[in-house]
Design a protein around this nucleic acid. Sequence first.
DNA 1: GCCACGATAGTG
DNA 2: ACTATCGTGGCG
Length: 204
Amino acid sequence: MSPRGALAPLPRSFYARDTVDVARELLGKLLVRSGPQASVSRIVEVEAYLGERDQASHARRGPTPRAAIMFGPPGHLYVYLVYGMHHCMNVITEGDGVAGAVLLRAAEPLAVGGQVPRATASIRPLAGPGKLCAGLGITRAQNGLDLCAAGTLFVAADPLPPPDVMPRVKRSPRIGVAYAGAWASRKLRFYLAGNPHVSGKPRE
DNA sequence: GCCACGATAGTG
DNA sequence: ACTATCGTGGCG
């Protein structure tokens, strides 16, 4: 069995915590997609969306039909459509009844179809939330999916973690939330400095 | 009902 | 800077 042959979903207790802590610790974790579109990729960029007080969060208007899932139990997937054409995927955080989510913005492709590719450049880039969902085949059909079950999508700890992941975590304001007043400048975007798969220009 | 506006990304 | 393209939610 290969070193990555025993990937298991992170337990619900991982998600049932402070959203910022979950966001930081998701960096370096593995996104595992099984089935026809099987792939493994490393999460390199995320954004934390806090509860109702966060004016950039979909939860800011309370548990509306779309955002209600953010108030639900942790460890589930929240997928929505932005600008009428791109999907964005989030993991739900905090305890049941408390809103919180982490937007997955970029991942580094590691393997496709169970095979480690010769060059990661041969794989579609996964930089940016829309591209990430497109690359993994995530649509609203996956909204509400339980990431803590061993299904077609889950997050796993890397059994062979690079030694320098956590020291490389940097933070910045979130992308595309200029309307959010004081919340627009809060440094709630986290990424691995220097990783070429991080979206946008300021990778350092 | 109706309508303004995005947690985007590619092109000019 | 401009645009494709549509669900969400605010408002009446």
